[in-house]
C-alpha cells in the first residue's frame, strides 16, 4: 500500500473525521456513478456506496487494503453491485455492465484494469479516427472536455457530441456479436 494511503487509513483508525470527510468528497461522486453503470437505480447505488463508507468507518481495523485505497473502494463497489445483480438473477457474461460502469464514471479513475483497457482499445480502433481520438483523450488520457477542445481546435460542444456518439458506437461495437469474443 502507498505511504499516503497507510497514513490515511491510520487516521481513520484514529477516528479522524476530517480525513473521513475528505475521502468521502474525493470518492463518493465517482463511486455512485460507477455503481449506476451496474444497477441503473439511483437509490440502490446510494445505498451501496453509503453502506461501504459506513463499513469503512466502522470496520477499519478489519479491512485489508492490498493495493491502494482507490482500488479498494472501486473493487468493493463492484463486488457489492455484482452481489445485488446476483440476487435479482442478472449475469454479466460479456462485461457489458462493467464497461458501462467505467464509461459512466466519467473520470476514468476506475480504469486501472489493464484487461478492460486492452479491450476498449481494440474497440476504439473500430471507431472513425477523429471520434476514436477524442474518446481516447477523454477516457484513456483523462483530459477535460475543455482541454480537448483547445488541443484539437474544435468547440466544446463538438467534443461533447463526438464523445457521446463515440460512447454509443462503442457500446454497439462491444455488443456486436463479432467483437463479443473479446469478452470471453
Amino acid at each position: 500500500m502507498k505511504v499516503e494511503d497507510k497514513i490515511l487509513v491510520g487516521e481513520i483508525r484514529n477516528r479522524n473525521r476530517k480525513v473521513f470527510e475528505a475521502l468521502f468528497y474525493e470518492y463518493y461522486p465517482h463511486l455512485t456513478r460507477y455503481a449506476e453503470g451496474f444497477l441503473f437505480d439511483k437509490h440502490a447505488c446510494e445505498d451501496i456506496v453509503q453502506n461501504l463508507f459506513i463499513h469503512f468507518w466502522e470496520k477499519t481495523n478489519q479491512i485489508d487494503i492490498q493495493l491502494s485505497l482507490k482500488s479498494y473502494f472501486y473493487q468493493s463497489v463492484k463486488n457489492r453491485c455484482l452481489n445485488h445483480l446476483r440476487d435479482i438473477n442478472v449475469q454479466d457474461k460479456h462485461k457489458i455492465l462493467y464497461l458501462e460502469a467505467l464509461l459512466n464514471e466519467d473520470d476514468s479513475s476506475g480504469w486501472v484494469d489493464l484487461e478492460i483497457i486492452k479491450k476498449v482499445q481494440d474497440a476504439i480502433a473500430q471507431l472513425p479516427p477523429q471520434m476514436g481520438e477524442l474518446f481516447k483523450q477523454k477516457y484513456m488520457f483523462g483530459r477535460k472536455i475543455q482541454d480537448i477542445a483547445v488541443i484539437n481546435q474544435i468547440s466544446e460542444n463538438t467534443v461533447k457530441t463526438q464523445i457521446r456518439r463515440a460512447k454509443e458506437k462503442m457500446r454497439k461495437i462491444l455488443i456486436d456479436s463479432s467483437s463479443l469474443k473479446f469478452f470471453f
Binding site: 499516503e4 494511503d5 473525521r17 475528505a22 475521502l23 474525493e26 463508507f53 459506513i54 468507518w57
Partner: peptide, 25 residues
C-alpha cells in the same frame, strides 16, 4: 446520512473540504 448511520456526530460547523492529498502531504 452516513454520519447518522455510522454514529458519527455531526461535524464542526466550519468543516471545510480538505484535499486528501494535502492531508497526507
Amino acid at each position: 446520512n452516513i454520519h447518522r448511520k455510522a454514529g458519527i456526530f455531526s461535524p464542526a460547523r466550519n468543516t471545510r473540504i480538505i484535499a486528501i492529498t494535502s492531508i497526507a502531504a
